[in-house]
């Protein structure tokens, strides 16, 4: 917890938090990081293999092969989400499955499934981007900022 947040707490609360903290199991950060590294790496390796496959057998170029590769990864993770397997893999793999495109597909698919009971419009449509929305909003915005910086540098004669 940040020190700024802690200042708002009374001395008794601060004392209790230290008391409780000493009795809580810690998140296994090192193990989690190693698992995430290997699972994330494996997903990337699968992606790379798929890309090679599309270039080799379907006449895609290195640039155009990206689309079918991502599509396959998305379809697979959406299916795994639907079959109720993805969340179990993610509990083990942590950031390893959350960071690649598979994690993004999972957020959209899981929200859609969850809110199916509220109907297609208010439920599925309205909640599909409940978790993914902020990724899209800030992703697009950061891309815009980066592009702006690039253009400014180019105009100033750099690159």
């Amino acid at each position: 917890m940040s020190s700024k947040k802690k200042k708002k707490l009374s001395p008794a609360q601060q004392q209790y938090q230290a008391f409780a903290k000493a009795r809580e199991p810690k998140r296994p950060a090192v193990t989690n990081t190693i698992k995430a590294f290997f699972v994330g790496g494996t997903i990337c390796l699968i992606g790379q293999t798929l890309q090679w496959f599309f270039i080799e057998y379907f006449n895609f170029t290195e640039t155009t092969a990206g689309n079918p590769t991502v599509a396959v990864l998305i379809i697979v993770s959406v299916l795994l989400t639907g079959f109720g397997v993805y969340d179990h893999i993610a509990q083990w793999a942590g950031a390893g499955t959350a960071i690649p495109v598979t994690g993004f597909a999972n957020t959209v698919a899981s929200s859609s499934i969850e809110h199916r009971s509220e109907g297609f419009v208010l439920g599925v449509g309205g909640n599909m981007f409940k978790l993914a929305g902020s990724v899209i909003a800030y992703g697009v915005f950061s891309a815009f900022v980066v592009a702006l910086i690039k253009i400014i540098i180019q105009k100033l004669g750099g690159m």
């Binding site: 109720g84 993805y86 969340d87 893999i89 509990q91 942590g94 698919a109 899981s110 978790l131």
Partner: peptide, 8 residues
């Protein structure tokens, strides 16, 4: 989160 969401 949604039940099928993969959060650790």
């Amino acid at each position: 989160y949604p039940t099928e969401y993969g959060a650790q």
